[in-house]
Nucleic acid binder design. Sequence first.
DNA 1: TATTGTTATACTCTATAACTATA
DNA 2: TATAGTTATAGAGTATAACAATA
Lengths: 163, 163
Amino acid sequence: MTVRTHTKTRAKGEAAFDEPAEEIDIGPLSRMIGYALRRAQIAVFEDFIASLAEVNLRPAQFSVLLVLDRAPGSTQSAVATALGIKRANFVAMLDELESRGLAERKLSVNDKRSNAIFLTVHGRKTLARARALALQHETRQIARLGDDGLDTLLRLLGRLSAR
Amino acid sequence: MTVRTHTKTRAKGEAAFDEPAEEIDIGPLSRMIGYALRRAQIAVFEDFIASLAEVNLRPAQFSVLLVLDRAPGSTQSAVATALGIKRANFVAMLDELESRGLAERKLSVNDKRSNAIFLTVHGRKTLARARALALQHETRQIARLGDDGLDTLLRLLGRLSAR
DNA sequence: TATTGTTATACTCTATAACTATA
DNA sequence: TATAGTTATAGAGTATAACAATA
């Protein structure tokens, strides 16, 4: 698609204040870290979502299944906090995973306030398939980054995320 | 803050399937590109928003002012497309910038369907201050990245965003 | 008193369809 | 027919306050 700006019919080569070039060059914006990060994140998430379409898992849902597999029996608060999700917002997320038969809440016997969360058998099977798909996605991104681009990128991103 | 998971009172050193460690380690997630990108983007945007609090400009609003300064008289569609914003969503954004006296729509004489967008004098003054604040923010992020971290990061992010 | 899960709510961002006036 | 701006609307994602049950 071609991006055009406001333009008058005008003799060739002639310039005017209110008539920018046909396509807008965003200029210094493309060298700003936040902007570049946002564009890259959108592109990578798009590829991730398309890659996992078969299992219908969004990035956040996949991350929850991964954590539940690593730390089965965790409370909702623990999982939510580990992933940077507010516990209030985690309720609906878990509701959906549970309604899809991927995870389940079990009443805790020790602390009756909390639920212990587990993957179901179906959840584990789905996660296994999701992992394979995510690996393909990841491999594709790593290939784009080139030789030791991954380690370098993760190191730099870690410095920005710290604190 | 300490993240705790579901835990029973239990003799020291004893392990159990449904009792994960006190804090959940997200594990392989931290080495996934999309996840690392998201965390970094959130951290950088947070710093950006705090840095520009004085002028009350969000990242997207700042980017619009930057583009208008570079390409005054551009149409709404051109600006929106250049920044990856849907033109329908750009209407309310511009409404706010206009109501704050930062930008203005002018009826185009050549094509009466479109508006030519300009910064106001106040918009230019605000942008000048915003640029100074954004530069401080950017300098802080660059310092975190270390020696030639910026060029490396932008090169890698560009490879992920391509297409 | 503090915490867990929950509900209600609101605000931002994003996406699509459809209208109008112009081209 | 197609495009620019607009409206309406819906869906994610995220944030806060408050409540009941339990610690």
